[in-house]
Design a protein around this nucleic acid. Structure first.
Lengths: 242, 242
DNA sequence: GAGTGGTCTAGACCACTCC
DNA sequence: GAGTGGTCTAGACCACTCC
């Protein structure tokens, strides 16, 4: 049992780690050393209170934070256990297109092919949770890296949530950035596919021949409302997502 | 000011959300509505205690959890503020292939085409931080969803870190899962591209014609060491990544 | 009924900032 | 010195599990 430094005993010069952090370290150390393997049942809060001389709220906070971080599992009425080795999900981070281009040392530029109000068609209505024929804002951009087209952005925006969309300046601000600034709590869902380019894509991305492209369908949500849906097309031979 | 349901008043039949969750919802609602915009200074804990009739520890827990989640920023001695709109990175979560297939209701199966020790070539040596000609473990798998090939997995594994690789059973456990189980702290980096299939891919994925594919190059790191590198090829017309 | 974790309170002391 | 957030305590009541 290690020695726990009480806050009161200590000199002001070197502030000790808070007690709950010390408890967390103690638990993690036991897990790392193999002393407490996966599925091991930890001592109860009451036992730790007694053994460590720390109040239950503090013990509880430490165990709660380790649980939130995925290290422990707690079952009310049963106990606290070392979490099973987790099958972690591997995330691919997607940056904004302008950030990707600038990070590569390129110059970002955005051509606005159109930006208008139009009646929504069936497919887009389903994506946007709107009814077919309803008016929707639609934009069609081509993003360039030092002049070379690297992404086509075909976007629908719900007029109710973003009435000012058509008046925005997209040469200095991407639509994604604009949306994120307006809605701090925006979340996104993605579907990634591969497809070969068709005549439309070849035209706007200035491709000479049929090319394999990454197609990302991104929906932007505010709670249960779909604020915007975009189809992003990247020519596979011109850009890599990292 | 909304009405906060005290735990004691309530009937046992419909347990109310805990008070700290109600405080979190209240804060988030004010943020969503624009009432509390970015950089807005929230009422102090003491004020919230008075106005809501909730104890400081409970208020504090709610604000702490929102801070940990990135919604608020707190400065000791100064106050609590709505966090600046973050230029958030949009993550695509990649599940393991067997999880993707099972989630779709399919049956996962893995064909082992080869699993051997071989001298590493130049390109792979660069990826694995090894020297050309050194012995490396290499595996070549095709994953199937109800019999249909949906992913080709061409993988190199560093023998020093995983000497038991060649003896493992890959019909019930993916290589990724095996690695994650052995190395709990494994991290990954990804490069995503699109490419059209070549003769090799057409053969192993049983594609009739040239097809657009998603190609993910995944490196698995333990600290600064590359444990494994894999090329994952998904036929774009058979699978979507979500 | 004994033991577990989940929540909440009222009060305390503290470090820090701003004036 | 007044106000802020950070931590900690001792005690309470509760829901839940297991026997």
């Amino acid at each position: 049992m290690p020695h726990f430094i009480s806050q009161k005993d200590d000199r002001p010069y070197s502030p000790p780690k808070p007690l709950y952090e010390q408890v967390k370290s103690y638990v993690l150390k036991n897990m790392e050393s193999g002393e407490w393997p996966a599925y091991f049942q930890l001592p109860s809060e009451h036992t730790l209170v007694r053994e460590m001389g720390i109040s239950r709220m503090t013990i509880h906070r430490a165990l709660r934070e380790l649980t939130q971080a995925g290290y422990l599992e707690r079952i009310q009425g049963v106990g606290t256990f070392v979490a099973a080795p987790k099958k972690q999900r591997k995330a691919i981070e997607l940056s904004e297109i302008d950030d990707i281009i600038r990070r590569r040392g390129g110059r970002h530029q955005c051509d606005v092919h159109f930006l208008q109000e139009e009646p929504i068609d069936n497919d887009a209505a389903a994506m946007m949770a709107m009814t077919s024929g309803e008016e929707v804002y639609r934009s069609y951009f081509v993003h360039r890296d030092n002049g070379l087209p690297v992404m086509l952005e075909d976007r629908y925006v719900h007029p109710k949530f973003m009435p000012e969309y058509l008046e925005s300046d997209f040469t200095h601000l991407t639509a994604d950035t604009l949306l994120s600034q307006k809605f701090a709590l925006l979340s996104h869902s993605h579907v990634v596919q591969a497809a070969v380019s068709n005549a439309e894509i070849n035209h706007f991305l200035e491709l000479e021949t049929t090319t394999a492209c990454i197609v990302i369908n991104r929906k932007s949500w505010l709670g249960d409302d779909v604020i915007s849906a975009a189809r992003l097309v990247f020519p596979g031979n011109r850009i890599q997502l990292t």
